[in-house]
């Protein structure tokens, strides 16, 4: 595979909550690394505090959260405020996966998470390419 040359933006990736579903985030991490991003992976079983701490420690540009347990809203409730409190006013927040337990209209789910402060919200089974394109756009890379 070709390594696309992109600026060394630092990303925090991981799964939030108790579930052990790891396949989705591992594929995304693999693709992000191959696109030249500096990926700081937290793996499974993280809290929002874990993500924020890692972002502060590494001076990250974006946090990418995967969640499959359906309880995402509770787990990321005030992540935007917490980021601001820790001096991460401008950090990008992305989330994707199975975000709600019951089937609801996608627009509604997206609105809920945008209101929490996420810049991008992705449906289940999203492929890496559009996420990478969004990151490059939002971070003004290339």
């Amino acid at each position: 595979m070709s390594n696309i040359n992109s600026a060394k933006a630092t990303l925090i990736t991981g799964v939030i909550g108790e579930d052990v579903h790891v396949t989705g985030i591992r594929i995304l991490e693999h693709a992000l690394k191959n696109s030249g991003f500096n990926v700081h992976s937290l793996g499974i079983h993280n809290t929002q505090e874990d993500f924020i701490k890692a972002a502060v420690d590494t001076g990250a540009d974006a946090i990418l959260i995967s969640s499959l347990c359906g309880h995402a809203r509770l787990l990321v409730d005030d992540i935007r405020q917490k980021c601001t409190q820790k001096g991460l006013e401008n950090i990008l927040l992305y989330i994707g996966g199975q975000l709600v337990i019951h089937a609801e209209e996608w627009k509604k789910t997206e609105r809920t998470f945008k209101k929490i402060g996420f810049n991008r919200v992705y449906q289940p089974f999203i492929l890496p390419e559009p996420v990478i394109a969004d990151l490059k756009g939002d971070l003004k890379i290339e």
Binding site: V20, V22, T23, R26, I27, E29, H30, L42, G43, I44
Partner: peptide, 14 residues
């Protein structure tokens, strides 16, 4: 290994 739960592998193979 691909898709490992541990953080202690490279995870490059797929």
């Amino acid at each position: 290994q691909p898709y490992a739960t541990t953080q202690h592998v490279k995870g490059k193979v797929m």
